[in-house]
């Protein structure tokens, strides 16, 4: 009887482990990217959004611990701020998205407890210039082989050769917050 009970526990443990454990490559497609900037002099909130984050990551999940890293690209032409004329200026004059169509984020592997906020480090390449970034990320797992990541990090526009974006008398402040949200699927 005792042996049978132990066997049942072992089987259940193995089943749970196979449900939550994962190690290997995951692909990311159509993740969300948002940025929040402030326009001066009127302290105007400028929000941009795109659903154009793609890439691949390595994920190692054991129990409630996760380790994730990877490389992601963002299609800059897909970023919209809600005002067509402003988007045109942003794409043509500042991002020059015809010449530099993508930004790249290399995420150094970081680990922590699933569902809790962790600090991460990475490198963001924009218009051919790469600068280190640091931010916060939360990784959750809704089912085996699928991970949701929410990350946010600040950048300074003056770190990149984008100039000082100005549109119709409103100048964008140097500090911009970037948020990403994506789901990784096991290959």
């Amino acid at each position: 009887m005792k042996m049978r009970k132990l066997s049942m526990i072992a089987i259940l443990t193995l089943a749970l482990a196979s449900l939550t454990a994962h190690a290997g490559e995951v692909t990311v497609k159509d993740g969300k990217v948002r940025f929040l900037a402030v326009g001066k002099p009127s302290l105007l909130k400028i929000k941009g959004e795109g659903q154009s984050l793609n890439g691949s990551a390595t994920a190692d999940v054991k129990g409630d611990q996760a380790k994730i890293g990877g490389t992601f690209t963002v299609d800059l032409k897909g970023l919209k701020t809600g005002i067509g004329m402003r988007d045109h200026h942003m794409q043509e004059k500042y991002l020059e998205s015809e010449k530099f169509p993508q930004a790249t984020l290399k995420l150094a592997p970081f680990s922590g407890k699933l569902g809790s906020e962790q600090e991460f480090k990475g490198d963001l390449t924009l218009k051919g210039v790469t600068k280190p970034v640091t931010g916060k990320a939360t990784v959750t797992q809704s089912k085996a082989g699928e991970f949701e990541v929410k990350a946010t990090f600040p950048i300074k526009l003056t770190d990149y050769p984008v100039g000082v974006p100005t549109f119709a008398g409103v100048t964008v402040a140097d500090d911009v917050t970037v948020e990403t949200e994506f789901t990784g699927h096991a290959k």
């Binding site: 009127s42 005002i83 402003r86 549109f167 119709a168 008398g169 409103v170």
Partner: peptide, 12 residues
Amino acid sequence: MSEYGRALSQEV
């Protein structure tokens, strides 16, 4: 109106 306000008048 500010220059930005004029632009918004057309855009939105």
